[in-house]
Amino acid sequence: MELISLADVRAAAERVRDRVLRTPLLPGPRSDTPLWLKPENLQPVGAFKIRGAVNALACLEPAARQAGVVTHSSGNHGQALAYAARGEGIHCVVVVPEGASRVKAAAMRRFGAEIVPAAPADRQATALKLVEERGLTLVPPFDHPDIIAGQGTVGAEVCADLAEPATVLVPVGGGGLASGVATAVRALSPRTRIVGVEPELAADAAESLDADRLVSWPPERAQRTIADGTRVGLSELTFAHLRERLDGIVTVTEDEIRSAMGAIARESRIVAEPSGALAAAAFRTGRVPADGPTVAVVSGGNVDPALLSEVVADGQ
């Protein structure tokens, strides 16, 4: 299976430059070892997904753009694709799993997406049915080279802003972000350790890498985690990237995720959704050696206000 390259990431960076915020590195919560946060919650849609969505749309043929696009998403990718498609005048349909975040679903509608609900186990099949029936082009959340290359621009920016970080921590859901970041960082800073982070309750990627084969968890098993962006498993493509380019994966508990969300908000003034707090949670638990400057990717900040208020208050 062909993996993306640094050249693909650099080409994506040129395509997305005028549509995506180049996020800075900001100081993380207090610690003995320097922690830097890469705040992708500051993107126009509140998450890194805008990078892959913009890059994927830029690569579409004119006929596909005219026909429209479809995806399946629990929230952030759907928002990103809807936002990017609106800017290009492209019709966008998002298949949303029942029980998805109301905050994220409402944002998709604001960005002009047509919403099609489906059972969590049926969302990909529903999207493929719409491709067949309506001639739409599928823009998957993570399982495509153009998506992975777009997400890889996060890693390229990290290496441009911080020379040879000791460790880069990145959340893992479907694996597109981790695949792209690992590709860029591995090429630009070979001595940097690249570690994925998952919730214990959705640790299919950790199990897959341990078994050296793709392991899929049933949707109802992964639904238990608060980190809704990680409730989807890897694809063969993202698994191949992670197996080749990650140094490992660690897991964190639900309480550790909530604690990290609160600490990031109180001490760094950064809003992180549960999935976005995974990397910082792994750093705070000490599961990754703190042997030099560390970057934790905050993948998104689209969090229910009630949950945010709760986790901030918990640490006071």
Results as ranks from 00 to 15, higher is better:
residue 11 A to V: 10
residue 17 R to P: 00
residue 17 R to E: 14
residue 18 D to C: 04
residue 26 L to P: 10
residue 27 P to Y: 03
residue 28 G to L: 06
residue 29 P to V: 12
residue 29 P to E: 09
residue 30 R to H: 09
residue 33 T to A: 15
residue 36 W to T: 09
residue 39 P to F: 02
residue 48 F to D: 01
residue 50 I to N: 01
residue 50 I to Q: 01
residue 52 G to I: 08
residue 53 A to F: 14
residue 55 N to S: 06
residue 60 L to V: 12
residue 63 A to G: 06
residue 66 Q to E: 15
residue 68 G to E: 13
residue 71 T to V: 10
residue 71 T to N: 03
residue 71 T to K: 11
residue 71 T to M: 10
residue 73 S to Y: 03
residue 75 G to M: 13
residue 78 G to K: 12
residue 79 Q to Y: 07
residue 79 Q to M: 15
residue 81 L to R: 10
residue 82 A to P: 04
residue 82 A to E: 03
residue 85 A to L: 07
residue 85 A to M: 06
residue 90 I to S: 07
residue 92 C to S: 15
residue 96 V to K: 07
residue 99 G to E: 00
residue 106 A to H: 11
residue 108 M to P: 02
residue 109 R to L: 10
residue 114 E to Q: 15
residue 119 A to I: 06
residue 124 Q to L: 13
residue 132 E to P: 04
residue 134 R to N: 09
residue 135 G to I: 09
residue 135 G to D: 02
residue 140 P to L: 08
residue 141 P to G: 07
residue 144 H to S: 07
residue 144 H to R: 12
residue 150 G to W: 01
residue 152 G to Y: 06
residue 153 T to P: 00
residue 155 G to Y: 06
residue 159 C to E: 03
residue 168 V to P: 05
residue 171 P to L: 05
residue 179 S to M: 08
residue 179 S to A: 12
residue 186 R to L: 05
residue 195 V to M: 14
residue 196 G to K: 10
residue 197 V to P: 01
residue 199 P to A: 04
residue 199 P to E: 01
residue 200 E to N: 10
residue 207 E to D: 12
residue 208 S to M: 09
residue 211 A to G: 03
residue 211 A to F: 15
residue 215 V to S: 05
residue 221 R to H: 11
residue 222 A to V: 11
residue 224 R to K: 08
residue 224 R to Y: 12
residue 224 R to W: 14
residue 227 A to C: 13
residue 229 G to K: 03
residue 232 V to C: 01
residue 232 V to I: 15
residue 233 G to W: 14
residue 239 F to E: 06
residue 242 L to K: 14
residue 250 V to P: 13
residue 251 T to L: 03
residue 260 A to M: 10
residue 261 M to E: 02
residue 263 A to Q: 09
residue 264 I to H: 02
residue 273 E to Q: 03
residue 273 E to H: 12
residue 275 S to L: 08
residue 277 A to S: 05
residue 278 L to S: 11
residue 279 A to T: 08
residue 281 A to M: 07
residue 293 P to N: 09
residue 297 V to C: 03
residue 300 G to S: 08
residue 301 G to I: 10
residue 311 V to L: 01
residue 312 V to C: 03
